[in-house]
Amino acid sequence: METKVTEIAPDIYRLSTYIPDADFMFNQFLVDAEEPLLFHCGLRGLFPLVSEALSRVVPVERLGWLTFGHVEADEIGALNSWVAAAPRAKVAHGAMGCLVSVNDMSDRLPVPLNDGEVIDLGGRRVRRLETPHMPHGWDAGLLYEETTGTLLCGDLFTAIGDSPALTEQEIVGPALAAEDVFGATCLTAATAPTMLRLADLEPTALGLMHGPAYTGDCGTALRELAAGYAQRFERSQV
């Protein structure tokens, strides 16, 4: 295995590790700025690969922030490995997630973020967007990098298999196919409306945790994904 590094938007890097035995891809994202930020800490076992890949862009000890979408092994498994390697980095997560999980799990007390709160990294600005139970997790949330219009969208658009680093090809079909296999998304009355609020941002790029970075019509992709989940929610009510 190897971790590949691709710049998907100015100063935003995708750190991608494909695991052939699982036929599944795990992506993490580095926002390079005066205070570099890592979104998704990744699986603990992948820390050596990913930290070496990150160091090709910035020294690990320069990291200023460690963040993630929700509490799950592939998002926070290596959290304390990063904490040990990056002594100046602040851990940050949504306020609810800090209260119920991260205050206890992190070796460094986290900074609680409110919905819409912005972290100024110095040259880049990331906004925390609370998305509880979407796609899953009470504490779920995403990051929107305001200066490039890049939405780091976590488990949204999860696809099975390997993929190119960047694509403008359709990503909704593979995402709904994977959903029908895994059933990983919470189907609630708020699922589709939450996706539609993200679509209103009209992002210029989507950073997928399990799939390619998408540089096509991001707003339309989010609306089509919302429609697919709305249909599944309606069927679940019958």
Rank of each mutant, 00 (worst) to 15 (best):
V5Q: 08
T6I: 11
T6Q: 15
E7P: 04
I12F: 04
R14F: 00
L15T: 06
T17V: 11
Y18R: 07
D21G: 12
N27F: 01
F29H: 00
F29I: 02
L30H: 01
V31P: 00
D32E: 12
E34V: 11
G42H: 03
L49A: 13
E52Q: 11
A53K: 01
L54Q: 06
S55Y: 03
R56H: 09
R56S: 14
V60F: 11
L63Q: 05
W65T: 05
W65F: 14
G69R: 00
E72S: 09
A73S: 12
I76S: 10
G77A: 10
L79M: 08
V83A: 09
A89T: 10
K90F: 10
A92Q: 03
A92F: 06
G97S: 07
C98P: 07
L99E: 04
V102H: 15
N103Q: 09
M105W: 13
R108C: 13
L109I: 10
P110S: 09
L113A: 09
L113E: 00
N114R: 13
G116W: 01
G116V: 04
V118G: 00
D120P: 04
G122A: 08
R124S: 02
V126K: 00
R128C: 03
H133T: 14
W138P: 03
D139R: 04
D139K: 02
D139E: 14
A140Q: 06
G141Q: 07
G141N: 03
G141W: 05
L143R: 00
Y144E: 05
E145M: 03
E146T: 02
T148H: 09
G149M: 13
T150M: 07
T150A: 11
L151M: 03
L152I: 04
D155Y: 08
L156T: 02
F157I: 07
T158G: 00
A159H: 07
A159K: 07
A165S: 14
L166C: 12
E168N: 04
E168Y: 08
E168T: 15
E168I: 15
V172T: 10
P174S: 08
A177I: 03
D180V: 06
F182R: 14
G183R: 15
C186D: 13
T188Q: 04
A189P: 11
T191L: 11
D200E: 12
T204P: 00
T204V: 12
T204L: 03
M209C: 09
P212H: 06
P212F: 09
Y214W: 09
T215W: 01
G216R: 13
G219A: 11
T220Q: 15
A221L: 06
L222H: 09
Y229R: 10
F233I: 09
E234Y: 15
R235P: 10
S236C: 10
Q237I: 15
Q237F: 13
